[in-house]
């Protein structure tokens, strides 16, 4: 076991977030929220002044503006424990067939850094949440995670299957796919421009 793996085992909660257009952030339990209109209006003015100016930009780091400063006060209803999770293995899968109790899929081992499907598996439908069941069709993409989690001090193993709600393809992805298709075509049948030039010479 490498040092990194050892410390991953001590890993608490890892999470990611993406946000746009502002700064600051809120962590914690669901809460009732009160808005202070005066403070919010003052902040709107500050933000507008910022956009109009070329001053040092405000960051997207969570701590760059505290909650108090944006006119929102939260009252936590109750303490919500965030389970500590340690991910051991992650695959991305593509659904091949859906049966009455199981579905089959091809898997890419993301933990091993693989890029191509190298494994096949049958997974029980019961492992899916109800909201994901309706998305389970041949061709659907999903993530399958196996790991440990700590809830109220108890360690347990978990497996989670989540069907991806894939965005539509971006322009860049379409261009990349076109390029890969052209490369594959050329590898199989040769470059059409070169073939035309060869035919003309003949």
């Amino acid at each position: 076991m490498t040092l990194t793996e050892q410390h991953h085992r001590q890993l608490d909660t890892r999470y990611s977030e993406t946000f746009a257009t502002g700064s600051g952030g809120i962590e914690g339990a669901p809460a009732r929220t009160r808005f202070n209109a005066e403070v919010l209006n003052a902040r709107q003015k500050r933000m507008k002044a910022f956009v109009d100016s070329t001053h040092d930009p405000e960051g997207t780091s969570l701590e760059s503006e505290s909650l108090d400063n944006i006119g929102i006060v939260q009252y936590p209803d109750s303490y919500l424990e965030t389970p500590r999770e340690i991910k051991l293995q992650e695959w991305e899968g593509q659904v091949q067939e859906v049966g009455s109790r199981y579905f089959s899929a091809r898997l890419v081992d993301l933990t091993a850094g693989e890029r191509e499907e190298a494994e096949e598996v049958d997974l029980p439908l019961d492992d899916l949440t109800e909201s994901d069941r309706i998305l389970l069709v041949p061709g659907a993409t999903f993530r399958w995670i196996i790991g440990y989690r700590y809830i109220r001090g108890e360690k347990e193993r978990f497996a989670r299957i989540v069907i991806r709600r894939l965005p539509v393809w971006t322009e860049q992805e379409i261009r990349t796919a076109d390029r890969e298709a052209a490369d594959l075509y050329n590898a199989l049948f040769g470059d059409p421009h070169n073939r035309a030039a060869t035919a003309n010479r003949d």
Partner: peptide, 25 residues
């Protein structure tokens, strides 16, 4: 969290790619 100045998506459970999918979509 969404307000007039900010759109914030957080995931506290794997798979984190859900944040990507939701934001991009």
């Amino acid at each position: 969290q969404v307000d007039r100045e900010k759109f914030l998506v957080t995931a506290i459970q794997e798979p984190l790619i859900r944040v990507h999918d939701f934001f991009v979509k």
